[in-house]
């Protein structure tokens, strides 16, 4: 049985978006297919790999495990909303500087989780970084440079904060 589309209003990367969506539409497909924001990836599709991680009302969540209708009224940030113009977010810059990626498929999710971690814990030790990354899988890097990148980003962000 088909069910009627429902209206939703979501703020995505600062921009108000209104749409009518089927109740079963997942947030990740709303972002990718309705809005064309394909930086958010679908990896495992079973809540394991974290490639689809976005921020919903400031919290890192797996957008493959959330309905678009559950995001009605929410403020969503995707990887496309992290840079300011041409200035990369410090976590994005860190992944570049510290070679925190190879194929890059997991990177948007890694960046979103790391950015959330650094907002809640600006000075994480390696154990805290690894614990925070348990829901993000990478098949290339072996994680060493990802952890290094997040440490580097934490230093940069604290430095910026101290000098501002």
């Amino acid at each position: 049985m088909e069910h009627p589309a429902l209206p939703i209003n979501v703020t995505v990367n600062g921009k108000a978006r209104a749409a009518e969506v089927e109740p079963r539409l997942l947030l990740v497909h709303f972002l990718r297919e309705n809005l064309g924001l394909t930086g958010t990836h679908v990896g495992c599709d079973t809540s394991q790999c974290g490639a689809c991680t976005v921020h919903v009302d400031g919290l890192a969540v797996k957008s493959c495990t959330m309905l678009a209708v559950q995001a009605d009224g929410a403020d969503v940030t995707t990887i496309e909303g992290m840079a300011e113009g041409t200035a990369l977010h410090p976590v994005q810059e860190a992944f570049q500087e510290q070679h925190g990626l190879q194929c890059g498929y997991c990177t948007p999710g890694m960046v979103m989780t790391a950015a959330h971690l650094l907002e809640t814990n600006p000075e994480p030790d390696d154990d805290a970084i690894k614990h925070a990354l348990e829901g993000n899988l990478c098949r290339c890097t072996g994680y060493i440079n990802i952890v290094k990148a997040i440490r580097w980003a934490a230093d940069q962000m604290r430095g910026q904060h101290a000098s501002s």
Partner: peptide, 9 residues
């Protein structure tokens, strides 16, 4: 439980 993203929701 699960991971950070799972615990957030």
């Amino acid at each position: 439980i699960g991971d950070l993203q799972v615990r957030n929701r």
